[in-house]
Every structure is written in C-alpha cells, then in structure tokens.
Design a binder for these strands. Structure first.
Length: 290
DNA sequence: CACCAGGCAAGCC
DNA sequence: GGCTTGCATGGT
C-alpha cells in the first residue's frame, strides 16, 4: 500500500482485495451510495467521505493523512489479509464461485451504536426504505458536519436519541420499530448495556446481552456482532441467505436454525466473510426471486 | 394493486 | 419448546 497526497486528496495504491462496489453493495452498511460509475459518498465515524476507484488507484477526497490512518484504515479493515480468507473459503466450489463475484468485499468496522439502531430498523424492511429511515434519523437529529463545501449530518448519539419522544421520532417514519429504537437508547443510557461491557464479552454472551434489547432477535443480533463488533464468525441468516443456502447446499426448504448450524460447521471462524460473499452473489444474481 | 421487505415479540398450544 | 399472527410503512 502506497499513499500520496495531491491537493487535499489522498491517492492510495496497491490495495489488494478492495472494490467499492463489492464493499458498499453487499448489504453491510446503509449510509454509503454510488454517486457515479466508480465513486461512492457516505458518512461514517462522524466524517463524510467521497471515495473513488480506478483499478488499483483509490482516491480519498478531501481527507487528511491523520483521518486515513486513524479512521478509514480501520473502517475499511485494511489491516486484514483477505487473500488468505478467500483461499480458505475457495476449497468449497460453491464459495469459490461466490468469492469470484465479490472478490473485493471487505467487512467494514462500523460503530456499535449505529449498527444497533440500523439493524433494528432493518427488520422486516427493504434496503431502499431502511436507507431512507436512517437518513431522516440523521438529518433530523444528527450533528452538522461540513465537507467539500456542503453540510451533512452524523449518526445521532445515544443521548440524543434517548432524549426524543415517540412523537419526535415519528418524523423518521420507522413504523413499529420506533419503540425498539427507544428501548435500545434506554438500555445504553441507563448503563444496563455499555459499549465497553458488550465488547468485553464472549460472542455468545455479547449476543445474549444484545438480545435483551426489544427488537433485537437472532438475526439482528448476528448483524450487530458481525458489523458493529467485528465478530467475524457470525453468520446472519436473512431471507437472501436462506434462499441461496437452500439453493446451493440443500435440496429445498430448510429452517433457519438448520442453516445456521450448517454454516457454523462448514465455515467456522470465517462465517461472516462467507455470509457477505454469498449475500452479494445472491443479490447480484437475484437467486430465488424469479 | 397486492405482495412483501436483511424479523421480532407476544400469544397460543 | 415450536408455531402463528400482528406490526407501520412504502418499494416494486
């Protein structure tokens, strides 16, 4: 990896296993969107970022070296060797095919609180609407930040969401999920759950702790573990994963627990990566929808 | 216009 | 324990 400054931009070359389309369209994050053929814009970690990619050259616009080293290097999981993970998964011919579709996927290291609220909102919802609800949450209650001459909004912190009434929250039109959002804020604000405490727990205990939040069940907790806590052995089973697993590994319908059990055995400690390659592959190929 | 979306909790047996 | 149902809203 090589970093060069040009004006206010950072030009990073030599990134392996890195593709913006794969990273931002594999369902892990809701605040980044394509703004042109090869560039994405979004907000994470209280920072806005415009990023573009041409083959080996990735440009972080209006970004300092400090922010790259302190924020984006970790956010994009650049310290991890994906080649090794991909080669391990590719012993399985099905995974080899899925990996070849999304060979530039990286699991983003997102903020825990944002993951908790975002995946509560994701329940029984579609991705365009999830993104809309989250944007309204940020625009109404986040802090203003300025980037490249424009104003954007951060993801609101626990105290801010805790202070909201149900009527305040109604502007985001989250439907029945509003009470779940408020329960998460209650539990984090009261200290029943804290980020430090959850991070100190083993994965099974962290999962149990997360599931004490109303609106956080099996699937949502797995997403929080994987995307907000870096527990890369988690294998969230949603409708897409259920369909593609039934299609690829089973002969017809299977229960979610059966699929989870199979994934745990089959993918072990790298289940989270397998899940992302499969999710991307299923959605790109619309597996099970026609 | 139905159908259903990255589910979950609560109420049944 | 497993199975059903209601849930708000809007994308397709």
């Amino acid at each position: 990896m090589d970093i060069n400054k040009k004006d206010n931009n950072l030009i990073v070359t030599g990134l392996k296993d890195f593709n913006l389309h794969h990273i931002f369209d594999c369902g892990q994050c809701f605040r980044f969107n394509a703004v042109s053929e090869n560039s994405y814009f979004g907000i994470a970690k209280n920072k806005a970022l415009l990023i573009s990619q041409n083959d080996d050259e990735v440009i972080f616009y209006d970004t300092t070296e400090d922010d790259f080293k302190n924020i984006w290097y970790d956010y994009f999981d650049l310290n991890r060797d994906y080649s090794e993970i991909k080669s391990r998964l590719s012993n399985d011919p099905i995974m080899k095919e899925a990996v070849s579709y999304g060979d530039g996927i990286r699991i983003l290291n997102q903020d825990l609180w944002e993951a908790v609220i975002s995946f509560i909102i994701s329940a029984s919802n579609n991705i365009p609407r999830i993104k809309g609800i989250i944007e309204r949450l940020c625009e109404n209650f986040g802090k203003q930040i300025s980037y490249m001459g424009k104003t954007y909004y951060t993801f609101p912190d626990t105290d801010t969401i805790y202070s909201l009434s149900k009527e305040d929250l109604s502007v985001i039109r989250s439907g029945f999920r509003d009470k779940y959002i408020m329960d998460a804020a209650d539990k984090f604000k009261s200290g029943t759950l804290t980020e430090e405490y959850i991070k100190s727990l083993s994965t099974p205990d962290a999962k149990k702790a997360l599931m004490t939040i109303n609106g956080v069940g099996n699937k949502v907790s797995d997403c929080i573990l994987l995307f907000g806590l870096g527990r890369v052995d988690s294998f969230p089973v949603d409708v897409w994963i259920k369909r593609i697993m039934e299609y690829c590994y089973f002969d017809g319908e299977q229960s979610i627990p059966a699929i989870s059990a199979f994934a745990e055995k089959h993918f072990g400690d790298i289940g989270g990566f397998a899940q992302q390659y499969l999710f991307f592959y299923a959605r790109e190929n619309k597996i099970g929808t026609e």
